[in-house]
Simulated scan of single mutants.
Amino acid sequence: MNLSEIRAAAIAPALALLPARMNSPQAEVMLLAIGLQESGLIHRRQIGGPARGFWQFEQGGGVRGVLLHPLSRSHALAVCEARGVAPSAAAVYAALEHDDILAAAFARLLLWTDPAPLPEVGEVASAWDLYLRTWRPGKPHRNRWDACYAQAMDALGDWVKV
């Protein structure tokens, strides 16, 4: 899928399941950039690893964290109900590989758990810092981030004004 298709098929429906205040150009840019960074928005199963979904969540990490964090828990439970997934780490983890809407919603909820506001569109270094804080990648690749972020901004087109 291209980025327009990801936005239409996964991100927009995921954001529609969440409170309106979670939907913004900053959120979409972050979701696209992180998806590109983590999986290229191609791989729903991590190559050589345990993570699942385009945003590469691990069962005991991001999935469990979103389900338990006080800022995301109630929203995660509502998303699970809407997607017909039991609100357990094992069930969500299994579904992420096949349910892009669930994966996008959990990715947005993980960003929601960070106490800082989302970086303004175009703040590439701040966006990288947020990604590091929330995803805590084992092998971060800063050298790819700028291109992923630029591609994400391009995908939003006129919606973002930098």
Results as ranks from 00 to 15, higher is better:
residue 3 L to R: 12
residue 6 I to G: 00
residue 7 R to Q: 13
residue 9 A to I: 02
residue 10 A to E: 03
residue 11 I to C: 04
residue 13 P to K: 00
residue 14 A to N: 05
residue 14 A to L: 04
residue 15 L to S: 06
residue 16 A to K: 05
residue 16 A to C: 05
residue 19 P to L: 04
residue 19 P to N: 09
residue 21 R to F: 02
residue 21 R to G: 02
residue 22 M to W: 01
residue 24 S to D: 04
residue 24 S to T: 12
residue 25 P to M: 06
residue 26 Q to R: 14
residue 29 V to L: 08
residue 30 M to A: 14
residue 34 I to P: 00
residue 34 I to H: 04
residue 35 G to K: 08
residue 35 G to S: 10
residue 35 G to N: 07
residue 36 L to Y: 05
residue 36 L to T: 11
residue 37 Q to M: 11
residue 40 G to V: 13
residue 41 L to A: 08
residue 42 I to H: 13
residue 42 I to G: 05
residue 43 H to Q: 10
residue 43 H to L: 12
residue 44 R to N: 12
residue 46 Q to N: 06
residue 50 P to R: 01
residue 54 F to K: 06
residue 55 W to M: 11
residue 58 E to S: 07
residue 58 E to Y: 05
residue 61 G to Y: 07
residue 64 R to W: 08
residue 64 R to V: 01
residue 64 R to I: 00
residue 65 G to D: 07
residue 66 V to R: 03
residue 70 P to Q: 10
residue 70 P to N: 11
residue 70 P to G: 09
residue 72 S to I: 03
residue 72 S to L: 09
residue 74 S to A: 15
residue 75 H to F: 07
residue 78 A to K: 02
residue 78 A to C: 06
residue 80 C to A: 08
residue 81 E to R: 15
residue 84 G to E: 04
residue 86 A to P: 01
residue 86 A to E: 15
residue 87 P to L: 13
residue 88 S to A: 09
residue 88 S to N: 01
residue 90 A to I: 10
residue 92 V to R: 06
residue 92 V to S: 04
residue 93 Y to K: 06
residue 95 A to T: 04
residue 99 D to G: 05
residue 99 D to F: 01
residue 102 L to Q: 00
residue 105 A to S: 10
residue 105 A to L: 04
residue 112 W to D: 12
residue 112 W to A: 13
residue 113 T to P: 01
residue 113 T to A: 08
residue 116 A to F: 13
residue 119 P to L: 08
residue 121 V to Q: 08
residue 121 V to L: 09
residue 121 V to E: 06
residue 122 G to S: 10
residue 123 E to L: 07
residue 127 A to L: 09
residue 127 A to G: 15
residue 133 R to C: 07
residue 135 W to Q: 15
residue 136 R to G: 05
residue 136 R to C: 04
residue 138 G to V: 11
residue 138 G to E: 14
residue 138 G to F: 04
residue 141 H to P: 00
residue 141 H to Y: 09
residue 143 N to C: 02
residue 143 N to M: 05
residue 144 R to V: 08
residue 146 D to R: 14
residue 150 A to S: 14
residue 150 A to G: 11
residue 151 Q to E: 15
residue 152 A to L: 13
residue 152 A to V: 13
residue 154 D to E: 12
residue 159 W to G: 00
residue 162 V to N: 08
